[in-house]
Design a protein around this nucleic acid. Structure first.
Lengths: 194, 194
DNA sequence: TGAAAATGTTAAACTAAGTTAACAAAATTT
DNA sequence: AAATTTTGTTAACTTAGTTTAACATTTTCA
């Protein structure tokens, strides 16, 4: 089981003893998924919070008209879950689908409770992770409110160059909240500007 | 010092002993602000995370063109802070301004550290609070991506009727990411639909 | 109470972004 | 390698939302 990347990641926030690390490792699940598979589908209960070891996922909402609205992508060293569904064990709002063959470390709800009970440091760790996620989420809201489509695209391109390389352009458009045609127009505009 | 609403609020998540409650109370600041004053201005370091006892605040970003983009309102029993600034002690992205005379309970960065150190249960409490805030933030992103202006307004009206009553309409428009004129148009459309 | 300031409405002209559809290029499958 | 599917581009047309500006209403405060 490849747990090194996770333990290394955690070590940036709190330091666990060997014993604690072993306990943690005993509680998590390591699993590979294939491109196209789903971790959660909207309406299901999200059973796991996951740390991505390798690969890529998209988290999206599908509206009544069948349109996909992409919330986020996750790659190596990122977390993914439908937090609302996982925490409250209620039906998920979002789908999480693998865009590449992906290796994950998965925390079930029970494992999470067990870990909090036995390793209080992890309470601190996850608080800090979620604080960061919340801050990023708030900043995204403000970007969506205050930036033009072009500026949002430039921000995305600049902030996540690794991601832009790996996913089709229509998914970037969906993430930015614009149509694929309009993104295509923006990109050709940007090219002709130079 | 009016700390009852806070203690009652916390009690929904974790139960503190009398001693712990007293310690908590000894670490926080109770303060009143007047309508129009600021808790933080963008560019400053956000010194406090606050629990609103009474009153109302708006959190907004002001862009280079001088336009306000409202992120959130807070009323009784809500939390307010520029989380990014508070956690990292870096310049704030947002302004927090009082829309009414407001009573707050304020947690400084040092108080927060002290509280986490002495009352580990609070680590759990704040993790849970932030999880909720994060979930709400994600849902807001998806609404902004997938709903029309009209539907966003109806959702807001329905979800926060207490808030809509208390604030001017142009602030609702800013929160929804549309112009005040367009909101006015939407409202008159809705009236004529019945 | 009356004047000033703040907030809300309406409408015309405008612009950013969406829709549709036809074609082009790239990636996958057979 | 050909065929099919997936992804990307371009362009004409439409629509949602903005801008500006003039006027109406409400609130604040001297």
């Amino acid at each position: 089981m490849k747990t090194k990347p996770l333990l290394k990641y955690i070590d940036n926030y709190v330091s666990l003893t060997k014993k604690e690390e072993d306990f943690l490792v005993s509680k998590v699940i390591y699993r590979k998924y294939l491109k196209g598979q789903y971790l959660v589908q909207q309406g299901d209960i999200c059973k796991y919070t996951c740390f991505v070891i390798s690969g890529c996922t998209k988290t999206f909402y599908m509206d009544d008209l069948g349109q996909e609205h992409i919330m986020m992508f996750s790659i190596e060293d990122w977390w993914t879950s439908d937090m609302g569904s996982f925490i409250n064990q209620t039906p998920a709002d979002f789908n999480i689908q693998f865009l590449e063959n992906t290796e994950l470390i998965m925390f079930s709800y029970e494992a999470m409770e067990d870990l909090y009970r036995n390793i209080p440091k992890l309470e601190r760790f996850f608080r800090q992770i979620i604080e960061k996620a919340f801050i990023a989420s708030q900043k995204r809201i403000v970007r969506n409110l205050s930036m033009t489509a072009k500026d949002k695209y430039l921000y995305f391109k600049n902030q996540y160059p690794q991601i832009e390389q790996r996913i089709p352009q229509y998914m970037v458009a969906s993430y930015l909240g614009i149509t694929k045609e309009f993104l295509s127009k923006i990109k050709s505009q940007l090219l002709s500007e130079e």
